[in-house]
Simulated scan of single mutants.
Amino acid sequence: MCRMSFKKETPLANAAFWAARRGNLALLKLLLNSGRVDVDCRDSHGTTLLMVAAYAGHIDCVRELVLQGADINLQRESGTTALFFAAQQGHNDVVRFLFGFGASTEFRTKDGGTALLAASQYGHMQVVETLLKHGANIHDQLYDGATALFLAAQGGYLDVIRLLLASGAKVNQPRQDGTAPLWIASQMGHSEVVRVMLLRGADRDAARNNGTSALHAAVLSGNIKTVALLLEAGADPSLRNKANELPAELTKNERILRLLRSKEGPRKS
């Protein structure tokens, strides 16, 4: 969702940002103690020293900056915070430390991103667990409607998906374009994710706004195991998308075609 920039404004700030990025605690302390570098100095994108240290996972530098008075909840121009960057990169020790000094899970990026969404998108299960324990909203969504569960399903992060579902995530919550977590997992060929979601009540025939079902997506991806799981769960091979295409019309894979044909006829309840 966001990337770090390291453009600096002055030679001393340049040195401080370098120290924070590389984890050079001695140099960072020297510069801060000189009184010539503000602990909350920013680059041209609003990035702070704390954000840089959190992104890199240098817990000693993070601790020094916080103890010297760094504002934990400052936002970059993109809306990102130190907590967001630590969560995105999977630095659970940094995330826990920041919570101890008042980090908030409520700040959003320009696309609606939160620390929980970032951690879920990159499969950082321990960070997701920590965030949820500290009040992160399981129902956070990007402005396009993607939830933490959707992002984890897209990446195929099964442990994160199980944690989110156990914490109350809605298995059928779609993006604004109608794409549900099951659909995106089917498209990506994450068959174990598909299996778990079906067991947790995912709508086997939920379609995007264009009428394309999870079975259409699985057929297009060419993942025979995903196709088989959906069919075994009762997905309907006779459903057409808005282009009037059947799933079987989207592939020349003989094994997948045989599977689909074996399920043709009256739909099983």
Rank of each mutant, 00 (worst) to 15 (best):
M1A: 15
M4Y: 09
K8P: 08
T10R: 13
A16H: 02
W18G: 15
W18D: 11
R21W: 11
R36K: 12
V39C: 01
S44D: 11
G46F: 03
L50K: 06
L50T: 09
V52G: 10
A54P: 04
A56R: 14
A56Q: 15
H58R: 05
C61Y: 04
V62D: 02
R63E: 13
L67H: 09
Q68P: 04
G69H: 05
D71S: 09
L74A: 01
G79F: 01
T80K: 07
T81S: 03
A82K: 02
F84S: 00
Q88M: 10
D93F: 07
D93M: 11
R96T: 08
G100N: 05
G102L: 06
S104F: 01
T109E: 06
G112W: 01
A115V: 00
A118N: 14
A119F: 00
A119T: 00
Q121H: 14
V128D: 06
V128N: 01
V128T: 04
L132C: 05
H134K: 15
A136T: 00
N137E: 02
A152Q: 04
A152T: 06
Y157V: 08
L164W: 00
S167R: 06
L182F: 02
L182Q: 05
H190S: 01
E192W: 13
E192F: 14
V193F: 07
R195H: 08
R195W: 15
V196L: 12
M197T: 05
L199E: 08
R204M: 14
D205T: 05
T212Y: 07
L215I: 07
L220C: 12
A235N: 00
P237S: 08
S238R: 14
K242V: 13
A248L: 02
L250G: 10
L250Q: 11
L257I: 08
L260N: 13
L260V: 13
K263Y: 15
R267T: 12
